[in-house]
Design a protein around this nucleic acid. Sequence first.
DNA 1: CTGTTAGCGCATTCAT
DNA 2: ATGAATGCGCTAACAG
Lengths: 348, 348
Amino acid sequence: MPRAVTLKDIARETGVHVSTVSRALDPRARDSLTVEVVKKVNETAQRLGYRPNRLAAGLRTKRTRTVGLIIPDITNPLFPPIVRGVESILEPLGYVSIIVNTDGRQDRERSQMQVLLEHGVDGVVHAAMERDASHYTDLQDRNVPIVTVNRRLDVDGLPSVVNDDAEGIHEMFRLLYEAGHRRIAHIAGPPTISTGVERLAAFREAAKAFGVSVPDAYIVESEKFLFEEGHRCAAKLMALADPPTAILAANDGLALGAIQLLRDRGLGCPEDVSVTGFNNSDVLSLVPPGLTTVGVDKTGIGKASATLLISRIDNPEDPETPHLVQPIEVVIRGSIAPPPRAGRQDPL
Amino acid sequence: MPRAVTLKDIARETGVHVSTVSRALDPRARDSLTVEVVKKVNETAQRLGYRPNRLAAGLRTKRTRTVGLIIPDITNPLFPPIVRGVESILEPLGYVSIIVNTDGRQDRERSQMQVLLEHGVDGVVHAAMERDASHYTDLQDRNVPIVTVNRRLDVDGLPSVVNDDAEGIHEMFRLLYEAGHRRIAHIAGPPTISTGVERLAAFREAAKAFGVSVPDAYIVESEKFLFEEGHRCAAKLMALADPPTAILAANDGLALGAIQLLRDRGLGCPEDVSVTGFNNSDVLSLVPPGLTTVGVDKTGIGKASATLLISRIDNPEDPETPHLVQPIEVVIRGSIAPPPRAGRQDPL
DNA sequence: CTGTTAGCGCATTCAT
DNA sequence: ATGAATGCGCTAACAG
């Protein structure tokens, strides 16, 4: 159990001072040294199997090459690709990321943030941000750069990378409208999350743009972006005296839950009710009838947010807080059909 | 941008020495101090918003409360629940985990392992272990505890937590056999991975136990545990002069790929060919015809491996290398039916 | 061009 | 019961 080899070991071995060793190993300081020394040091470092202790280095430099990644829940299939996107940028730069899950709970978010701070993260990619984050003083105080991804704050405080929610919702509405639907309902996301309110706003916008009137009862708010909630909300919609012929859901999970509810009620999608989603989860191609949805570049927003974060870390004085909006893509599958004719014969 | 508050700040504020502050904040050393002092120190720590610098502490103690988590790819749905399981144990103990993805590449695994070492991890949970890991000297040398999960080494070297692969395969074989199948093929996992070879061995065992003879051509080896490979391997099977009536796949991804191939060929599952999987991925309930598969407790093996790792970290001298085998569960859905009658009429 | 010195924040041994 | 001193491994300012 030999302890890790340190600069001191290399110094002893080569006969030069530790600081010289340090310089010889540092690409930026290396050129102020003799080629010989640099060569010898690097060779023995190699031979001894030297690995820098980033903790010790970080203690001096205040840069740990560690970033925090805050997400609601890694088992939600939206996030792994974002994580990979972030890491694809960070890893070549020598960073590692510490991932923490909030489960959508603010108390967990706060404590996890403290944990990240204790571990000296150089910055944070926040994929679990709620609209109101008045408790963000900790970070502002410690001057830890933070970038939100997929969601954003209501205020302008933090740089963000989001998808073009408005465009996505508009396109889904258009597809439903052009298929002939006029009774279009919306299962909205939680009002505490930017994607919830922005997609709802976009839905109202689209309805207005297409001249479709939407009764209040056609908008039902979910508490989480999950299957079960989609099921629950769809039940409320289909219990109406005048149920919708189409459901535009705020994400795929809600949409799949809605389709399940329809199935439970003996209704078919798309024959009886058309449904659309948002995000284009990977599994969708396997799940009948094939959800028509908004495709987002999950890896891309991850990459963009990491790039943004790195630029914040490297230029802490830069006062800009960019807000990037990534383009979406329309993914057409089988969950939209023309509305059933009024007064249609019931099945059987 | 006030810097983080340190022990020194609290010392100055309270008028006691830093070492006293350190002791007052350490639950183990606290009782050698006056109650007053402890109280005052903790209060001002609270008031100043003190957060320990774990890097500095780790530099002294050689314990960073950081563990590494090596997985093939977080976008593979098998792993997020394992990750959550691991973290559910580690988080309450004050540990954070650094997750790295290997993409099944040994070179990446090695470099990622170095990265973890540089960040001073106290231990590693390895979910991407290959059978032959002759390059594990680094870890042995640095005496970093490591536990494998889901997979294990061929040799006895490392503690492990795996599922009861043999039992699972046996049960799938039994279901197929009892449905009347005698021409049962196996899409095996990669031979470089323990789950690949162990499930294959279990398949042969089961065939022998049930008195079913398996032609060599009925066993086809995949290169990765993925959908595309299942598709490719099933194509080989169905191209045989005497194709199987059932395919027992080494995991769900392979099974889903096989079902897709059947569909591409105009064949139905389960009417024409029965298929089984392994792992019981979350999405399966939504994908027709509903894959009959082996349910594994993903969170459970994550928890077990973390628990094992902690005990290794806390008792480094303990010479035991336990090998835990977690029970599996049979999950019956719709992908098994009796084999079509020999000389059946073709569809149409 | 390289050695010396100092200190990051903390835990711990040794005094007292 | 508490203060003083030391060093973990590294980088950076300062000398020379």
